[in-house]
Computed example of a mutant assay.
Amino acid sequence: MHTRGRRLKLTAVLALTVLTLTGFSTGRHHSSSRHGHGSGGGGCSSSSQDHDTSTSSGGTTGGSTHRSRPTYRSTPTATSSATARPLKDGTAVLKRCASVDDPYTTVEVRNPNGREALFTVKVAYKDSIGSTLADTTSQVSVPANGKATLRMAAASTGALDRLDHCEVDPRATVDR
């Protein structure tokens, strides 16, 4: 008979532990002013339980204090693309103009944004009196807050013999 009593006591303690850990209660609750409910029935979905705090509910059962489970709230993560800030245009600087010997123009593009972006760069090829011989546009991907060098083919190799200088649009437009 003594062994049976120990088993019952152990079973009762285990059941109470399981109920306590899962949020069920034995019916003793503190009055929650936030919900406006008094003490009442138990169960996980009981609206009279306050699961938002980890303070003692004041009731004791079998010498142990029942505590509400802490609420785990999600932490903010990186913003989604729908709420992300719009990308800003970059800057373009002419490094080397095309010539008959090397029909490529070199442009450095800078990205002021905190993420990688694709930029469009425009170069105008001018003669000695400032008339435009040809225009070229090209795209380049630039890392976040970084720079990239773009080598652009001249639009018209026939105009290179009359080419005096290149003018790059200082605004590298971001492709949205």
Rank of each mutant, 00 (worst) to 15 (best):
R4L: 14
G5I: 08
R6N: 11
L10D: 13
T11C: 09
A12V: 07
L14A: 15
L14G: 11
L16E: 09
T17E: 00
L19Q: 06
T20P: 03
L21N: 06
T22W: 04
G23M: 03
G23T: 03
F24A: 09
F24L: 12
F24E: 12
S25L: 03
S25P: 00
T26M: 11
R28K: 05
H30W: 05
S31R: 10
S31N: 14
S33M: 08
S33F: 02
R34V: 14
H35I: 05
S39R: 08
G40C: 01
G43D: 10
S45E: 08
S46N: 14
S47R: 14
Q49R: 07
Q49N: 11
D50Y: 02
D50E: 14
T53D: 12
T55N: 00
T55Y: 12
S56Y: 15
G58V: 07
G59D: 10
G59F: 00
T60D: 10
T60E: 12
T60R: 13
T61A: 12
T61F: 12
G63S: 08
G63V: 04
G63H: 01
T65M: 04
H66E: 06
R69Q: 07
R69T: 13
P70W: 06
S74K: 10
S74Y: 03
T75M: 09
P76S: 02
T77V: 13
T79P: 09
S81F: 06
S81W: 01
A82R: 13
A82P: 02
P86Q: 14
L87D: 08
L87H: 02
G90D: 06
A92V: 05
C97Q: 06
D102C: 05
D102N: 15
P103V: 00
Y104P: 04
T105E: 11
T106Y: 08
T106E: 11
T106K: 08
V107I: 13
V109R: 10
R110M: 06
N113M: 10
G114F: 02
R115N: 05
A117W: 09
L118S: 14
T120D: 15
A124R: 08
Y125A: 07
K126I: 11
I129K: 11
G130S: 12
S131I: 03
S131W: 01
D135A: 03
D135N: 15
S138H: 03
Q139E: 15
V140L: 07
V140K: 01
S141V: 10
S141T: 13
V142Y: 01
V142H: 03
A144Y: 13
G146T: 10
K147T: 15
M152V: 15
T157D: 11
G158L: 12
A159H: 05
L160T: 09
R162D: 12
D164I: 02
H165M: 03
C166S: 09
E167L: 11
V168W: 02
V168S: 07
V168R: 06
R171T: 11
T173C: 00
V174Y: 03
R176Q: 09
